[in-house]
């Protein structure tokens, strides 16, 4: 995990997998997760192996998460917001879940 060099000054509360988390206002979802001790945020699409943020600059697409129901969000490119619900992205999407109900 990552350690904060300074305590949080402006706290933002969000959820990861239903658990309450706290982040610093303005930081990305990926950084907020790393600072909260979450190293893995998704399972890979072929073998289902755990993966975590790798480049933090929008190039590698390893930090994909589901944010407020929207899948495949790049965690490092989205600013964490109060009340955000972040969920792990599990493997590839199936046709069933893509079909509107």
């Amino acid at each position: 995990m990552f350690r904060r060099l300074a305590p949080i000054s402006q706290a933002v509360s969000f959820e990861f997998e239903g658990r309450p988390m706290t982040a610093e206002k303005g930081e990305s979802v990926a950084l907020a997760l790393l600072a909260s001790g979450i190293q893995s945020c998704r399972d890979s699409v072929v073998s289902g192996e755990p993966r975590g943020p790798y480049c933090l600059m929008g190039a590698c697409f390893e930090c994909l998460v589901v944010i407020d129901g929207v899948p495949s969000c790049q965690g490092c490119q989205v600013e964490v917001k109060a009340g955000m619900r972040v969920v792990r992205q599990s493997g590839a999407r199936s046709m069933d879940e893509a079909t509107p109900s």
Partner: peptide
């Protein structure tokens, strides 16, 4: 570079 981004943009080590 990712670790450097964490350091620069959020003060995370």
């Amino acid at each position: 570079g990712a670790a450097q981004i964490a350091l620069k943009s959020a003060g995370l080590v």
